[in-house]
Simulated assay, not measured.
Amino acid sequence: MLSEEDVAYFRRRIGEVLQDERATEWQRQFLSDMRQKMDRYGVRTKVSEKQFAILKRLTHEHSSSPKLHVVTQTSTAPRQPRQEPAGHRYSSAPFERSPRKRSPFRVRDPFRPRNPFRIRNPFRPRYPFRSIAGAGRGSFLIVLGCILFVGLIGSFFGGGGGNIGSSSGPRSVTSAPSPTSKGQANFTITDGDTIRLSNGTRVRLVGFNTPEKFEPLCSNEAMLGNRASERLWELVGQATTTDVSLVACSCKPGTQGTKKCNYGRSCGKLEVDGRDVGQILISEGLAVPFVCGATGCPPTPRPWCG
């Protein structure tokens, strides 16, 4: 079982990992489910050994992470069966592994090497769908190569210039070659108020806050978050000059550059043709002002869900 310190630790680390756009879709889904479970049950949260191992791996940091504590029976008296409420998820102890059931339609991983020393059972039934992966491995590689080739040709002929696609993921942007643009740099757009420089530095644009598109509180915020990201891409793509300048974050002294300051991100400003992108997004209703003090910030404004 988890203690209050463990629950607080995992909730904090899950929030930090979800802020990092490098997490995959299934990792985000798993961490979101675990955080909802901890928000609902707190210290009574029950997880299996496999779930706990995955949770530790996804939220690992340099500091020591919590260990799973299994409650054991210390009394010599016979153990009384536990009365579970109706509709309870677990039918046995929280860390007892249920027997694995094999599906007759399970497809073998085509990239997993076979063990040459394994003795096959001659009486084991053969499943009709298991041979698909092995038999079609060559065809699969050919189809994959064709898809990659077609995608490369399509990006070569249709991906240039300032064309705007419908994807909501990060996009690569190169600032215009102007000798007066001191903050000239290559960067990608993460969302409406966050960019990533070519050297890997994540920069939170200051002075405004746009709706969240990765963890929205409602559908309206998700729609506006995607629109703000697309609008920022339009402003950068249509600008003659861009200027990226780093500024000091509003954090406590001694925390600059650490995870305790703005989740480890840097702070900066982005100007297109001499205009701050934050002011443009605010004037178009895609952002709200968010001004921080010298060593801290007020609660993040998110008025899009009413």
Score class of each variant (00 low, 15 high):
Pro128His: 04
Asp109Gln: 04
Asp191Ala: 02
Gly293His: 09
Glu16Arg: 15
Ile282Tyr: 05
Gly134Pro: 02
Gly162Thr: 14
Pro94Trp: 03
Ile119Lys: 04
Trp26Cys: 08
Leu68Trp: 05
Ser168Lys: 02
Ile119Glu: 10
Arg28Met: 12
Gly207Leu: 03
Lys46Tyr: 03
Pro99Asp: 05
Leu205Phe: 00
Glu271Trp: 02
Phe123Tyr: 10
Ser168Arg: 05
Gln19Cys: 11
Ser172Cys: 06
Arg28Leu: 10
Phe30Gly: 05
Asp273Cys: 06
Asn226Phe: 12
Leu31Met: 13
Asp273Phe: 00
Thr76Phe: 09
Arg196Tyr: 00
Leu217Glu: 11
Gly136Cys: 05
Gly237Arg: 15
Val206Met: 12
Val107Thr: 10
Asn226Trp: 12
Asp276Cys: 01
Glu16Asp: 09
Ser198Asp: 13
Val107Phe: 06
Glu221Tyr: 04
Ser167Ala: 15
Ala93Phe: 00
Gly158Ser: 12
Pro216Arg: 06
Pro170Ser: 15
Ser131Met: 01
His69Asp: 09
Ser266Ile: 01
Gly136Leu: 11
Thr74Lys: 14
Pro177Gly: 10
Arg227Trp: 01
Ser155Cys: 02
Glu96Phe: 00
Phe140Val: 12
Val47Pro: 07
Cys305Glu: 04
Gln279Asp: 15
Gly278Thr: 11
Pro78Asn: 14
Gly154Ser: 12
Ile14Val: 12
Val288Lys: 04
Lys259Ala: 13
Arg171Ile: 07
His88Tyr: 12
Ser229Arg: 11
Gly254Ala: 09
Glu5Val: 13
Arg227Ser: 10
Pro301Ser: 07
Pro303Phe: 00
Pro177Cys: 11
Val17Phe: 08
Leu224Cys: 07
Phe111Pro: 00
Lys37Gly: 11
Pro66Asp: 05
Gly165His: 10
Gly138Phe: 04
Gln279Arg: 07
Asn121Ala: 07
Val206Glu: 13
Leu232His: 05
Arg204Ala: 04
Gly138Leu: 07
Glu4Pro: 01
Thr201Leu: 10
Ser63Tyr: 04
Gly225Trp: 13
Gly169Pro: 00
Arg35Ala: 15
Ala222Met: 07
Cys249Ala: 04
Arg130His: 04
Gly134Thr: 12
Thr190Glu: 07
Thr190Pro: 00
Pro116Thr: 01
His88Trp: 07
Gln256His: 13
Leu270Gln: 03
